[in-house]
Each structure stands twice: as structure tokens, then as C-alpha cells.
Write a protein that binds this DNA or RNA. Structure first.
Lengths: 117, 117
DNA sequence: GGGCTAGATCGACATCCGTCGATCGAGCTG
DNA sequence: CAGCTCGATCGACGGATGTCGATCTAGCCC
């Protein structure tokens, strides 16, 4: 690659009318957009949406053993989804004895919500 | 598999205290969650978030030729992302002559926003 | 019609994702 | 300590995703 060094301008306009109005730039920076996309990605699965819905409703904390019977997936699969939500900062976990209790981290959802219209 | 036919109950409780409060159910149906997740999935990429940001800011319509110089991806890649947004119903398109003008479909984003806290 | 332009589609490739069974580790109970 | 339970991790598999170059199609202009 790197052969055509004349580097023809990107917004070449045909002789007639210009195609559009003056250029608009995104107001979100790339790093902001990356963070927003990461939160959205964590919500890009129906099961995870429902898990967050349960946790959010149940203001306190919810045990994994309570989540398991709600969804028809294997225990490793549910654990995998919970990890996705954890890694995105959407939920937190607290271990008490044998049980893990999950809760929603509202700040993470706020990142997405505050960007939406 | 299918050996232990006694089928031990799912919420077997150890003799001590129960692990958690009464069971909480999700309030979103599976189909609602699927729709929410589809919208979130379409926003699960920084480039798409920035594209939507530009379109939303520019109240009217934005020509693809105006989007292209804003992002350092090839034209087919940008077109691919626009298709993702189209398929999710987040943006619409209107062709005028050679140019395609894209605009945001606020209703789709509302599906996600109205579910968030 | 011939040549050009904008943008959508195709094909290929590497990577990531959702799912499961199997296994592991921490912690309780007897 | 021995045995059990909860939940996380591992390994494997098929399918989806992001990216690009190449190609195709629709529409403009001479």
C-alpha cells in the first residue's frame, strides 16, 4: 500500500451543487463513546437486560441462587453473563459465606442514560 | 447425563439460614428485553455511538459523504455500521440523487431510555 | 452512450460471543 | 478432616462481528 501519494482530497465535490450542509462533528469524544458503547454492549443481551431488571427492582441485593431458577440457562452461562455485567461496572458483588449477592451500580447505567436524548 | 433421577430441587436450602429473600421476578418480558437488547447492541460500538451523536446533533439529515471524513475507517466499514443502525431502527435513510441522507429515529432510542432508571 | 461518483454489497479473514459440560476453590457442616 | 454446596473458571464448539479490498448498482454529466 502507500502508493498513491497525491492523496486526493477526501471531500471531493462534483461540479454541481455540494452534497450537504457544513460539516458537523460528534460532541462525544472517542473515549466517552467507548465508555458508552461498553455499557451498551453489556446490555446487548436479553438475559442480561432481565438480570439487571431483577437486580434493579430488588433494591437491596440478590443471591445468585435466586437468579438461577429464573432463567433457562446453565449455571456457568449465568455466571458468564454476570461477569460481563461486572466487568462493565453495571453490577457489583458481595460474597457472604457460600453465597454471592449482586446489586446494581446505578452510576454505570447513568453513563448511558445521560447520553440518550 | 440423566442419571440422578431423584431430581433434587433447584432451591435446596442448607439446614442453616436461607440464602435470600423471597424470589423476585423480572418485570420486563422476554420480548421486551429482546427489543431493548437489540437497541443496546446497535450502540455497542464506539463508532456507531459517535455516528448517532452526529446525526442527533444535526437535527435534519446528514449525508454519508459528510460522515466519511470524520472517522478513520474505510467506506465499506462505515456503510456496514450504518446498516447495523438501520436494521435496529435507530436511523433512517433517504436517497436523493447520488447521496444518502441519514437521520435519527428517536423512537428506537426511547425504547432503551425509558427502561433505564 | 461513456465515463464518473456515491454508497451498498460481497467475500475473506481474524476475533469475539453465547453456550455447555467438566472442573476447581472457598466455605460450611457434621 | 471428610463430604457437601455455591459459584467461578476452563476448554471447546458453532455462530456472529468488525474490518478491509474488490465489485456492483443507481444516478449524474458531458
Amino acid at each position: 500500500m502507500a502508493v498513491d501519494l497525491t492523496l486526493s482530497p477526501k471531500q471531493k465535490r462534483p461540479p454541481g451543487e455540494p452534497c450537504c450542509e457544513p460539516i458537523a462533528y460528534p460532541e462525544v469524544t472517542l473515549s466517552e463513546a467507548t465508555r458508552i458503547a461498553a455499557v451498551a454492549k453489556a446490555l446487548a443481551d436479553p438475559l442480561r437486560v432481565q438480570v439487571v431488571d431483577v437486580l434493579r427492582r430488588h433494591a437491596g441485593e440478590v443471591c445468585v441462587c435466586e437468579l438461577e431458577p429464573l432463567f433457562e440457562v446453565s449455571q456457568p452461562t449465568l455466571s458468564h453473563h454476570l461477569k460481563k455485567l461486572r466487568d462493565a461496572g453495571i453490577v457489583g458483588v458481595e460474597r457472604r459465606g457460600l453465597w454471592s449477592f449482586y446489586y446494581v451500580n446505578p452510576e454505570a447505567l447513568e453513563i448511558l442514560r445521560s447520553w440518550l436524548p
